[in-house]
């Protein structure tokens, strides 16, 4: 497998960075691959622009930044207009159906969307697990890493008192990704 570059973009507080760290940890610690994760964000913790990038590869990764993502995940309208021009033909776009209105996108881009935020609120009564549903959706859809590795990484990185909730939300996303 050659390098896969993923860019996740949204707003501060949506768990964008944590999601990317979970992917990187799953790949590098539990699947013995190489992974590099970087992030950019404004100085405001909540509500500011956040963008996190992760590259996973079987080989050593030289260039640590994703200029043109293979998978672009967008969780806010503002982030959509900021990042969509970097997505080339035949690449994957994943969006939150209720938060992002997708328009003027090339037919050759594979676009998938789910109601991550709404499911988090309706089913789990906590919008903080929307990122886990998105993460499960991403893995269910693309199969870039195993579910078991992701689960182990979540166990490592999520506080113990909300771990079960996060894992349930992750598998909810996997089912959504598999079925849609």
């Amino acid at each position: 497998m050659s390098e896969i570059g993923i860019r996740l973009a949204g707003l501060g507080g949506q768990g964008v960075v944590l999601s990317s760290v979970i992917i990187g940890r799953a790949a590098s610690v539990f699947e013995n691959m190489e992974a590099v994760q970087t992030q950019t964000y404004g100085s405001d913790m909540r509500g500011g622009d956040v963008c996190s990038e992760i590259i996973i590869s079987e080989q050593k990764i030289l260039y640590p930044i994703v200029n043109y993502p293979d998978i672009l995940v967008v969780l806010a309208q503002k982030a959509f207009s900021q990042h969509i021009q970097d997505l080339k033909e035949n690449r994957i776009l994943i969006t939150d159906k209720n938060l992002v209105e997708v328009n003027n996108v090339s037919k050759n881009i594979k676009h998938f969307c789910g109601s991550f935020n709404n499911i988090a609120i309706d089913k789990f009564k906590d919008n903080r697990v929307a990122n886990m549903i998105m993460l499960g959706f991403l893995i269910g859809k693309t199969k870039i890493l195993s579910q078991a590795s992701l689960e182990k990484a979540i166990v490592d990185l999520v506080p113990a008192n909300v771990m079960e909730l996060n894992i349930q939300a992750f598998y909810e996303g996997v089912i959504l990704g598999n079925n849609l």
């Binding site: 994760q37 992030q39 640590p64």
Partner: peptide, 9 residues
């Protein structure tokens, strides 16, 4: 700052 904040294996 990029190396400092970058995560890698």
């Amino acid at each position: 700052s990029l190396i400092g904040h970058m995560r890698e294996r």
